[in-house]
Design a protein around this nucleic acid. Structure first.
Lengths: 342, 342
DNA sequence: TTGTAAGCGTTATCAA
DNA sequence: TTGATAACGCTTACAA
């Protein structure tokens, strides 16, 4: 743990009897520096254990090489998978990734956004907290540096977005349930102020109507989409005078919760009751019965969002204008046991 | 996306007709600066939308405020949970977290370690890649800045570590299986050059011997601990002239893989065959039958590792020596259906 | 209580 | 082809 001083370009310069500026040029492969000097510099760097100091470079160039990634929480496999892909893509692009979690809390979201700005991140990729009702903080940062929102986006914010086509997702889910003969379909929903959940609800409503089924108020239950929520809601639904015969959950977690309740009540899935989730979380293919769901291509989302910031940055540094882009992925229905009857 | 210039302390100084140094002192709550000036500075900062530039501060103070976290992959819920806790703890301590993934690849591990040094991280928390057979790169970084290894540690590296008592974990797992009457226990193992896996193997061997059961070479199968590995290995085991009647897997992923094979073969779990995993991954409590496992307290690991770097850093900046610490957590047996017979 | 000035490690501009 | 110099934004002795 010795705090021996780091070697700098000055050390290399002294060592070789040249100036720091020559060394700097050698490293950046400046055209007007002799091959001989370059070689000498590289060797000296190796020998002295030189590591460039990104803080200094960043300060001088006005570029930190940092991208901030803000998500509700890393423990959710959906976000974990996306971050994994983002980190890989950004890292290949030469960026370092700094990560923060809002824990679905608005204040934390603001604080971390500020922290990112202080750290001089060049761009931000974010998925908004459930508690967030206002767009101001994102608008402010989006005006200063490239901002890409994914999955949990805000409707009236004109920034680049990477989302799945949630409307189509709902349509596919409901169409599927109906094709399997389910008629009284309830929706365990997310909060409508967050884009994807609003759209999923809308898709659910319109598709249910399309099939001529009646649209019941009590069949749409917004929640925080946890396993516990799924359990509570399913219990409540079963107590209704006319309970549903299927649920479409906006996330796989409450879908699983609902499933456990059905099992407890010895209601056979899929024979008597259908269950479909959203996201294709790992557990959906592991549980019994396996849960039908919508694949969201999380890896893709990560890669696209990462590319999107990097593109914006590239444009910016070339002095070009950058127009916010929408990347919309089509979700894919994955039929598993929980709906596959007949 | 306007690139309007950022406001600096100079802007604030000019605005107030004072000097940048006074502004700087006001922000750092310097004792010898008037309350009036401080107030004026804060108001001006607010008004002008000032954000301190951490690159500049970092360069000047020789502290970046960055901690590097290097893990094999974020998608594994074990690591995701740990990172979640780390980020929260470090963020409370005023640090930003930069994340990188080795993808269990030695070269990537080295590259990211170097990247961290260039980014001037103040400390590093890491869990080593499966492919890593040498300690040199970690030793080198550990000599320059505080390094904390967790879970996947290296034996002959004297740095701070946060691990679970893997030996005890094995003992508890085997004792439990034996108490349930299983006698021919196989071990789906990790690679022995990584500490926790070596120790788990050792614990397995000695406990099996302790119970007077015979220790078969073909009952210890090292692998990369994926679901697929679990499937392949279970298939192979069933082909043995004398197959095992239980498996103890060093991870919950292959444990699940093995389980699917057993189900396919209509071998009843736990009646005819016992399965126990390690880590208490989410899926273990969701699948049928639920899988017995060892709780590793991943959140705790994250918090402890985070605190450990911060402590080392604190000591360092106070000029004190810091002695590497070992944090050893005791794993807890979680009995579920997959072993709970009789 | 505040100002002056140097410096953290790099790079860009200009001059040699 | 290389060197001198200033600057990026901030902190910190030291001076006033």
């Amino acid at each position: 743990m010795s705090v021996r001083k780091k070697t700098t370009i000055v050390d290399i310069a002294d060592y070789l009897g040249i100036t720091p500026s020559a060394v700097s040029k050698a490293f950046s492969d400046h055209p007007r520096i002799s091959a001989k000097t370059k070689k000498a510099v590289f060797e000296a760097a190796e020998k002295l254990g030189y590591q460039p100091n990104y803080l200094a470079t960043g300060l001088r160039k006005g570029r930190s090489g940092l991208i901030g990634v803000l998500v509700p929480g890393i423990h959710l496999s959906f976000f974990a998978t996306i971050i994994k892909a983002m980190e890989e893509t950004l890292s290949e692009g030469g960026y370092n990734v700094i990560i923060a979690q809002s824990q679905d809390n608005y204040e934390k979201e603001c604080a971390h956004l500020e922290g990112f700005m202080k750290a001089q991140v060049e761009g931000i990729i974010a998925s908004v907290a459930l508690d967030t009702q206002t767009t101001e903080h994102y608008r402010k940062t989006g005006m200063r540096i490239p901002l890409v929102l994914f999955d949990r986006t805000l409707r009236d914010l004109e920034v680049s977005k990477v989302v799945v086509d949630d409307y189509t997702g709902s349509v596919k889910a409901i169409d599927h349930l109906v094709s399997k003969g389910y008629r009284r379909i309830a929706h365990i929903a997310g909060y409508a102020h967050i884009e994807p959940f609003r759209v999923r609800i809308q898709g659910y409503q319109e598709t249910v109507k399309k099939h001529g089924l009646d649209l019941r108020e009590e069949f749409i239950i917004p929640c925080r989409l946890t396993v516990a929520d799924g359990i509570d809601i399913m219990n409540d639904l079963l107590k209704l005078p006319e309970p549903p015969d299927a649920i479409y959950a906006a996330s796989d977690l409450p879908a699983y919760g609902a499933l456990t309740v059905l099992k407890e009540h010895k209601i056979r899935v899929p024979e008597e009751f259908g269950v479909i989730g959203f996201s294709n979380e790992v557990h959906t293919s592991m549980v019994t019965p396996t849960i039908s769901t919508m694949e969201q291509h999380s890896e893709n989302i990560g890669v696209l969002a990462a590319r999107s910031v990097m593109e914006q940055l590239a444009h910016l540094y070339e002095g070009k204008e950058y127009i916010p882009q929408q990347n919309i992925l089509t979700p894919k229905l994955i039929v598993r046991e929980s709906t596959n009857r007949e």
